[in-house]
């Protein structure tokens, strides 16, 4: 006991001298842990990107390679030439942009009504809307699928777009933002005789660009990454969005790893770019319901 406490006292005395060293060790361990974790988490993405630029010989060695020897572009050229991947990407862009615009229009209109217009049954309707957040899309999948068949919308853009044009999440997000806008502006516009349409278009929408940006990034990425609905809705190759098209490429036996991964990298590019430029908006959207302020 006494030696221990003696040691503790000695340690305490030395604290001042060794303080910087301790901090240095702590910082180093902290960063080493972060670097290790970052390498593990980024590896699957790095793997796809690096194999994209490897020659078939590099890929076919017994041990997995970690760095391409040169900036080999043939895989990308070949995947673009031999598969309809550009068509898949075009489809995904058409669908994602249409859904994004639709969600922004329907969402901002409804959010305006719920935030600023006093109409009968408003709270009941809003509550009813919110209950749909508890209905996962799989629950309504079968009737929606049968409905698309009845409409003749199988394998069409409208079948992939129209069912997703309104989201309660979007309404909720925009309504929260609208309610924080300065009321004086709207009062002044009212005094000038502006109606709801004009207030919506000239005051609320321009002031809400951050929230609309958030909804836009969020809904684009969600639509781009969809899997089950487009899997059910598309039969022909030319209607497939990229997520479905890419998994079908992998099924084809003759495809080598570097070609499949070249396709994956091309499919990843838009979402990665969106993440780089829109991470802030995305975070704002995700955390809208999560963190109490």
């Amino acid at each position: 006991m006494s030696t221990q406490s003696q040691a503790a006292i000695n340690g305490h005395k030395q604290m001042k001298k060794t303080f910087n060293l301790k901090k240095f060790v702590q910082t180093t361990v902290h960063y080493l842990a972060l670097i290790l974790l970052a390498m593990i988490i980024i590896y699957p993405i790095y793997f796809a990107l690096s194999y994209t630029f490897m020659t078939p010989q590099e890929v076919n060695t017994a041990t997995p390679q970690f760095l391409p020897e040169s900036f080999y572009l043939e895989n990308i050229k070949e995947v673009l030439a031999t598969t309809p991947i550009l068509r898949f990407i075009l489809n995904s862009f058409i669908i994602s942009i249409a859904v994004m615009i639709g969600e922004i229009i329907t969402g901002s209109l409804a959010a305006y009504a719920f935030a600023f217009v006093q109409f009968k049954g408003r709270n009941v309707i809003f509550a009813l809307f919110l209950t749909t957040l508890m209905v996962p899309s799989e629950v309504t999948l079968i009737p929606r699928y049968l409905m698309m068949g009845a409409f003749g919308w199988m394998d069409t853009y409208q079948g992939l777009i129209v069912p997703h044009l309104a989201t309660v999440f979007g309404i909720f997000l925009l309504r929260q933002f609208f309610m924080q806008l300065p009321k004086e502006l709207m009062e002044a516009a009212r005094m000038d005789g502006a109606g709801h349409g004009r207030i919506f278009l000239t005051i609320v929408l321009p002031l809400s660009r951050p929230a609309i940006g958030t909804l836009g990034v969020y809904s684009f990425l969600n639509t781009w990454n969809q899997y089950l609905w487009p899997l059910l809705m598309t039969n022909s190759e030319e209607m497939r969005p990229v997520q479905i098209g890419i998994t079908m490429l992998q099924d084809e036996e003759f495809m080598s790893w570097n070609l499949v991964l070249a396709g994956v990298s091309i499919a990843l590019l838009p979402s990665l770019l969106l993440l780089i430029f829109g991470l802030k908006q995305l975070v704002a959207g995700i955390t809208a319901g999560a963190v109490k302020q």
Binding site: I41, W224, I244, S271, L272, L282
Partner: peptide, 9 residues
Amino acid sequence: LPIAMSVGT
């Protein structure tokens, strides 16, 4: 980063 990854890719 993984948030940008779709279930397909």
